[in-house]
């Protein structure tokens, strides 16, 4: 009996030592600790021992049982820990699962940027139709028929009275007809110019115009507002200038330039927008008394702004909608 106890203990230790996985471990458990295992057999045999030998071997057997169980538990923990770590291996270098990001068109993103700046300055956002009347697009804005000023904007006509709007200014007229001053709006939208499609020009583009009509609106306020806008968009340290210009619907009129310094190239003045005080004729056309009210208006093209900002050389990229272009923004 004693001999068997020692042998079982030794062979258990030996076999347990070389176990690598839980399957082999389970075999050992069945062989030694199972219901019909070697340890159970020993206890069976123990029952048939003479009474006087029982105390001696009983104690040894219990020691053996505890010893085997402890060793087994330790090994079990060791094997399962190593197996778990094998199973939960993560290859951090594998590419992640792809998702489509989606984005607004870069022109709309640029419009948003402009819109947000002006909303912060208290402007509302108005829109209007693209197929307009000659009256709203030209007459009401102080472009007389047969006047060379009309050559400033090559126009697509549907018939002599209807056209594709050449600027979003007709929405100025519509808004002033609808509301009484104070009116403070910006007008984003598509406009059309009858120009050949090339790298630098397209038959349509996006414009944002602004209009503010109230008592005591001055050119100084226009200048202050636009300088604030330009600084928010282009940075606080821009150099800028206002240059006299001509638009039929504003008087006096100006264009705003900022100093553009591309890396490694000669700097130059770059026109970023046109502006001016609303012409009294325009106010009269919508029934606002120019002796009581004054106003300013301004307008800018979104395509060119984004071209400069992102270094896009060909305006047609915007309307080709190549996915490789769309994904960049």
């Amino acid at each position: 009996m004693e001999q068997r106890i020692i042998e079982i203990g030794e062979s258990f230790t030996k076999e347990l030592d070389i176990v690598k996985n839980s399957k082999d471990l389970e075999e050992i458990r069945i062989k030694f600790l199972g219901r019909n295992g070697l340890l159970s057999q020993l206890f069976e045999d123990f029952k048939s021992l003479p009474k006087e030998e029982k105390p001696k071997f009983g104690q040894t057997l219990n020691v053996l049982k505890n010893d085997l169980q402890n060793k087994f538990d330790a090994k079990f923990n060791e094997v399962s820990a190593s197996e778990k770590s094998e199973k939960s291996f993560v290859d951090f270098t594998l590419p992640g699962k792809k998702k489509s990001k989606g984005s607004k068109h870069i022109l709309i993103q640029t419009l948003d940027e402009i819109k947000n700046i002006f909303k912060g300055l208290g402007f509302s956002v108005a829109t209007g139709p693209e197929l307009e009347s000659d009256y709203n697009n030209f007459e009401a804005l102080n472009f007389p028929a047969d006047h060379p000023a009309r050559d400033m904007q090559d126009t697509f006509f549907v018939n002599p009275d209807f056209l594709l709007r050449t600027h979003t200014s007709p929405v100025q007229i519509r808004t002033m007809q609808k509301y009484a001053p104070p009116i403070r709006i910006i007008i984003p939208g598509k406009v059309y110019r009858n120009e050949a499609v090339s790298m630098k020009s397209y038959c349509l583009f996006h414009q944002v115009e602004g209009l503010y009509v109230d008592k005591d609106v001055t050119f100084a306020e226009l200048k202050g507002t636009l300088v604030s806008f330009a600084k928010q968009l282009y940075g606080n340290d821009i150099q800028y200038r206002f240059r006299a210009s001509f638009f039929p619907f504003t008087e006096p009129s100006a264009e705003m330039d900022i100093w553009w310094q591309p890396a490694g190239k000669e700097g130059r003045w770059l026109e970023i927008l046109g502006c001016g005080m609303v012409d009294p004729n325009v106010l009269k056309n919508v029934g606002i008394d120019p002796e009581v009210y004054s106003g300013y208006a301004f307008g800018m093209g979104v395509e060119r702004m984004a071209m400069r900002k992102y270094g896009i050389n060909d305006i047609r990229n915007y309307f080709d909608n190549d996915k490789r272009f769309l994904e960049q923004f």
Binding site: S100, G102, I108, D112, K119, V125, A126, L204, F319
Partner: peptide, 25 residues
């Protein structure tokens, strides 16, 4: 803001993975 609705639509579709395009009228 008369562009608020269309902008909300844009943002929802962007969230669903759609890219916006602008084509010639």
């Amino acid at each position: 803001d008369e562009t608020a609705f269309e902008n909300q639509v844009r943002e929802t579709l962007n969230g669903l993975g759609f890219y916006e395009i602008i084509t010639n009228s």
